[in-house]
Amino acid sequence: MADFVTADDGQGTGLDASSDAGFDAGEDRPRRITAPVSAGDRIFRGLLRAAGLSVFAIMGLIAFFLLYRGLQALRSSGWSFFTEQNWLTQAHVFGIAAVLPDGIIIALVALAIAVPVALTAAVFISEYAPVRIRSALVSLVDLMAAIPSIVYGLWGLFFLQPRIVGFVRWLTMHLGGVLPFLKVRTGDIDTSYTSSPFIAGTVVSLMIIPIIASLSREVFSQAPQGEREGAYALGSTRWGMVRKVVLPFGRGGVIGAVMLGFGRAMGETIAVALIISPKFLVTGHILENGANSISALIALRFGESDALSLSALMAAGLVLFLLTLLVNMVASVVIGRSRSGAATAD
């Protein structure tokens, strides 16, 4: 990028006399510019390149070792690893058919709560907030992302859960008949409503709000000034301008941000593991006690010492790794293809 640019011979320097003299046009090729690189620079670049390539090495090693360590379990279970709901490694009956969908359910609940809050907050920060407090709000959203997940977990377990039970009871009683996934089939006692995918998802939503909000705010704030003013000049109100200029401009970025949030929600471990009571059955009843996810399963079961149990966890971890990688790749492609993404790229 910032190489020395030197002529490799003396002929081309100074005024270009050759064109005046009317030499053969075939001779007038662009001169190849080479940069002499000193030995020190060569070593320096080699070191930097090694550091850059180390990220490939790390990601490759992660994939390789999870596969290598999980192979024993995958061999033992075969394809039933993807169809079996139970997790009984002692009996050689185990699979991710329950933990994977259950984890996705928690992530979807989290998205359902986080997306409206994060997007409206992003619109507020980039369009409505007074300029004086804007940077403070941006910092606060960053701070929200820096709060450790175990603190969110404590908050969810001790603060939110007792206060949300009444609301959950109301939801299931009045809407459970209409919307089957809100039904609770275990009787009207408080413990039927706790440790559910809904509560875990609510807590996870707090962790993905800052991710979605900060990315969306960034794309919103890059909506072109000319188009904003054009909308105002045509008599638009502020909301009209936001709806017709800012939101369409940021659409790709927002979709990408939501997918990144989904990936993060899938991988969230500690808060989920603190709140749920594990079950190995896909029910789809999000308000009912009992939930699970791959990451929570790993966090709760890694203490089992026999080789097959650990190997099975490694295989589950590999699935989680590949899934989040896929979601992130798709998200970055979506962001890169969108108009706002093209504007934010270098």
């Binding site: 990220v55 790390i58 990601m59 992660i62 999870l66 997940s149 990144l260 990936g263 993060r264 899938m266 991988g267 969230e268 471990t269 990451s295 790993i298 966090a299 971890g317 989680l320 790794f321 989040t324 990688l325 992130n328 790749m329 970055s332």
Partner: peptide
């Protein structure tokens, strides 16, 4: 590097 930022911590 971007994919690595989103690496699940448990992994």
């Amino acid at each position: 590097v971007e994919a690595m930022t989103a690496l699940p911590s448990i992994v």
